[in-house]
Computed example of a mutant assay.
Amino acid sequence: MRLSRRRAMALGLAVPALLRTGRAKAATVLKISHQFPGGTATEGDFRDRLCRRFAELVSERSKGTLSAEIYPGSSLMKTNAQFSAMRKGALDMSLIPISYAGGDLPELNIGLMPGLVTSYEEGLAWKTRPIGQELTKFLAAKGVVIVTWIWQAGGAACRSRPLVDVADAKGVKVRGGSREMDLVLQAAGASVLSLPSNELYAAMQTGACDAALTSSTSLTSFRLEELAKHLTSGRARSYWFMLEPLVMSKAAFDRLSAEERDIIVAVGAELEEFGRSAAMQDDVRVAKVYEAAGATVHDLDDRLVQAWRALARDTAWKDYANKNENCARLIKLAMEVGS
């Protein structure tokens, strides 16, 4: 028998909240998947920590109507499936190198275009410049929203001989991290292989990979110092900057209330300073970790950066611009930021 509110009060029973206020809105739980090692809010890979801070802040500001569950180490789904899953609305959020989706959406290879971005300031300036606005529109049209802009400098871990100058690449089996980086390495005489960063340790351990280009954070999070005799560091200069944002399925974003969307956007923007600071700290820390493990650390100077940039301009930049009109427009806008 259904108990009316009046009957319940007459019987001296407590009136359930649903009877007093109507149907309560169920809390929204966002699933965030990424490929990096898990930790805590204060310890471990900063990309995992950033996701945990995001979850804590959105829960606090939404008074519990929003929460998030973190799935590190590709424990929810495989790395290369995450971007496509967000586009389909099958995954809520991920922190992922944007260039991982370059196979399906070649425009996104601009997120790891060698020599294009040469400082954190330049990369982070994209957000408010026409290049960032156009990239944001393009992603939204493909079903993905950028929540937090994160850039990382990269380096190279090498099993036997260093990879510092362009000439060093000849004959090396190397993981570049993007189609465009692979084009540059191939032009320098290397043979390339494509795999996500969480598979690098096994590839280097078996000898399938002689050298790996990846972010400073991944160079330590995936323990490559255990296998490398040389490190090319990004602590001074780098020709290798990667856009690795926290992103969200537009379908999931659009399902939220206006207030909840505002919270997502505000928290995402606030975490950008944490991401920049943590990435820069890792550029310094990685050199110390490799030195302690017995590796020789090599720093880049302006001459080396410009040599790699010149090769990239003649190969990867041209190849990208010739893909389609969108690519040509995006790289032109990106070049304006550094001019």
Rank of each mutant, 00 (worst) to 15 (best):
G177R: 03
K137G: 10
A187I: 13
K142M: 06
Y201H: 11
A157K: 04
Q205I: 00
D165T: 06
G189M: 09
V144C: 05
A190H: 14
S191Y: 09
T214I: 10
G207W: 14
A188C: 11
L163Y: 12
D165G: 05
L135I: 12
A202E: 11
Y201N: 00
V145E: 09
A203Q: 10
A153M: 08
D168H: 14
I146F: 02
A167V: 12
D210L: 08
I150K: 03
L200W: 00
K137C: 05
D165E: 11
S191W: 08
V172I: 15
D168W: 15
Q205Y: 04
A157L: 08
D210Q: 03
N198G: 00
V164R: 06
R175Q: 04
T206G: 01
A188V: 10
K170S: 07
E180Y: 03
A211G: 05
W151Y: 15
A190R: 11
L195N: 02
G189Y: 10
G155T: 07
L219Y: 04
V145K: 11
A212W: 06
G143K: 02
A187R: 12
L185V: 13
A211V: 08
G176K: 04
V144P: 10
M204Q: 06
F138L: 13
A140L: 15
K170Q: 10
C209A: 03
F138M: 11
I146V: 09
T214V: 08
Q186R: 14
F138H: 11
G155C: 04
I150D: 03
A203M: 10
A140T: 08
S194E: 09
A169N: 14
G177Q: 03
S216L: 11
T214S: 00
